[in-house]
Amino acid sequence: MNKVPNNRAWWLVLPVFILVAFSALIPLMTVVNYSVQDIFGPGNAYYVGTEWFKEVLNDERLQDSLLRQFAFSGAVLAIQIPLGISVALMMPKSGIKASLCLILLAIPLLIPWNVVGTIWQIFGRGDIGLFGWGLNALGLDYNYTGNTVDAWLTVLLMDVWHWTPLVALLCYSGLRAIPEAFYQAAEIDRASRWAVFRYIQLPRLKSVLVIAVLLRFMDSFMIYTEPFVLTGGGPGSSTTFLSQTLTTMAIGQFDIGRAAAFSLIYFLIVLLVSWLFFTAITHLDKEK
């Protein structure tokens, strides 16, 4: 028995393919073209080969912002994933309290990025912001516009406030999907709270967590609006992340060729990481 699968259904993908071609493939091809040229204006471009790539790869400003970006994404994951799991574990299982918790958690997710930035910009100010004023009143020298550590902490705190609820909600839905019988069996075995978490809840959360990690990594890796509004990338360039460096280069300095080469490298990094996560997810599914 050798069955040949009928592949004609693939034609149904054609409309999507055409759409993606217009919105992604053609722009991507254009960017590749720009990245090998020095463009001064329409019809005034010079072929420079891989010079931009070489320059971008050895540019210290970009290397710094790449490192900063990885540090930020790493910190975001290290804080938000455990915190999100703990919040989900502490949430009530059902009833009006559960609904209330869900609504409260969802509120930060509904606020637009630039508004989040503005909220925290005012919130953190020493003169009129409750957070900044409170810290200063406690005798702490807090100033996110002047101090690098303070700026970093504020950006991190803002992202934690904005996006931990997403992780918590994902974990919460994962936890609710665990059948009650598992807990009853654990109780019969007199399993400790930690054992229940380690051997029942955590393994069952695995696939949800992979999605949470993927989403949080992608989002934090492309973060732009919030730090741009909050600190403008400062003090100095201490909170200037990759996308802001890229935007300054492409739109601020109109350095199209260099920005194109840079965005291709950015794209390759995102592609590699997403592929790794995607492989991890599909691998997990196969194990089941």
Partner: peptide, 8 residues
């Protein structure tokens, strides 16, 4: 506007 070059 795509500025095609032979290499690309």
């Amino acid at each position: 506007w795509m500025n095609w070059t032979p290499t690309v």
